[in-house]
């Protein structure tokens, strides 16, 4: 049975990756996983790279589970809509496993040369996390 839904948009600078009605959106926030249902109180948080899940309305009222590997970004929940902004969002079939592995190795290699607590270190960490999220989603 389909519950109450809310308009949900997943936006990257290059395209709107998803737009539709969602029953539930689960994203990895900097403070842990955030699950958003319809009529959520106004809420804004930053997201870490990870896997974003959403139960969206499919054909004939059935819901469909969507999964995206996302890079860092932001989630804004309002009673009447949910917006997620990320640099990149990929579904399982859009992920290039070899490219993800290369990114992971290159970033880990670069990170070794840096000292923690620097901005560069954090940036490489974000690249590593996004690559790992992609690999995890492909399984």
């Amino acid at each position: 049975m389909a519950g109450k839904t809310v308009p949900f948009r997943l936006i990257t600078p290059i395209a709107v990756a998803f737009e539709g009605e969602a029953e539930l959106v689960i994203a990895v926030g900097t403070e842990g996983e955030e699950g958003i249902l319809a009529s959520h109180a106004p809420f804004l948080t930053a997201l870490r790279p990870g896997i974003l899940r959403a139960n969206v309305g499919g054909d004939g009222g059935a819901t469909k589970r969507l999964e995206f590997a996302t890079s860092e970004g932001f989630l804004q929940a309002l009673p009447d809509r949910v917006t997620v902004l990320v640099d990149a969002a990929m579904q399982r079939d859009q992920i290039d496993t070899a490219a993800a592995r290369t990114d992971l190795e290159a970033a880990s290699e670069r990170q070794k040369q840096l000292s923690p607590q620097t901005a560069e270190y954090a940036r490489e960490q974000s690249t590593i996390d996004f690559a790992q999220a992609r690999l995890q989603l492909v399984g």
Binding site: G29, T30, E31, E34, A41, P42, F43, L44, T45, A46, E72, F74, L78
Partner: peptide, 18 residues
């Protein structure tokens, strides 16, 4: 502000990332 918005962890922390 449109409504009382809740920020996690804090508006300052989110702004620092934004």
């Amino acid at each position: 502000p449109r409504a009382a918005v809740e920020f996690a962890p804090s508006p300052e922390a989110v702004l620092t990332r934004l």
